[in-house]
Amino acid sequence: MKRKEFVSLALTMLVLLLSMLTGYVLLSFVYVGSPFLVGLVGLGVLVVSVFLVVYLVKLRKLIDEVDEDENKTQG
């Protein structure tokens, strides 16, 4: 994966995170039912958000390692 592809993936995940958070905020404003259910959905959004951020950080480290290895073999 090249840096351009990583940036594209990171922007796509950022849009996904923002849309999930916006949806959750709108749900919490509109939903009149159980606050436990709203909290449970919020917890789900938080778990998915943390997973995506950790995935991006690990992917970034992997890309940097591959770039360093390519530079060592070329140099």
Rank of each mutant, 00 (worst) to 15 (best):
M1L: 06
M1V: 02
M1R: 03
K2L: 00
K2F: 04
K2P: 01
K4I: 09
K4R: 06
E5R: 03
E5Y: 06
E5I: 03
F6S: 00
V7P: 00
V7T: 03
A10C: 13
L11E: 09
L11R: 15
L11H: 08
T12C: 09
L14E: 12
L14A: 07
L18P: 00
S19W: 06
S19E: 05
M20G: 01
L21D: 06
L21A: 13
Y24F: 13
S28I: 02
S28K: 14
S28V: 07
S28M: 15
F29K: 01
F29L: 11
V30E: 04
Y31W: 08
V32Q: 10
G33H: 11
G33E: 08
G33D: 03
P35H: 12
F36M: 14
L37D: 01
V38P: 00
V38D: 06
V38R: 06
G39R: 02
G42A: 09
G42K: 09
L43S: 12
G44V: 10
G44F: 09
V45I: 15
V47Q: 05
V48E: 00
V50H: 01
F51E: 00
V53H: 03
V54N: 07
Y55T: 08
Y55H: 00
L56M: 14
R60G: 06
R60T: 03
L62W: 10
I63L: 15
D64Y: 12
E65I: 12
E70M: 15
N71R: 14
K72G: 02
T73I: 14
Q74C: 05
Q74M: 10
Q74Y: 07
G75I: 09
G75H: 11
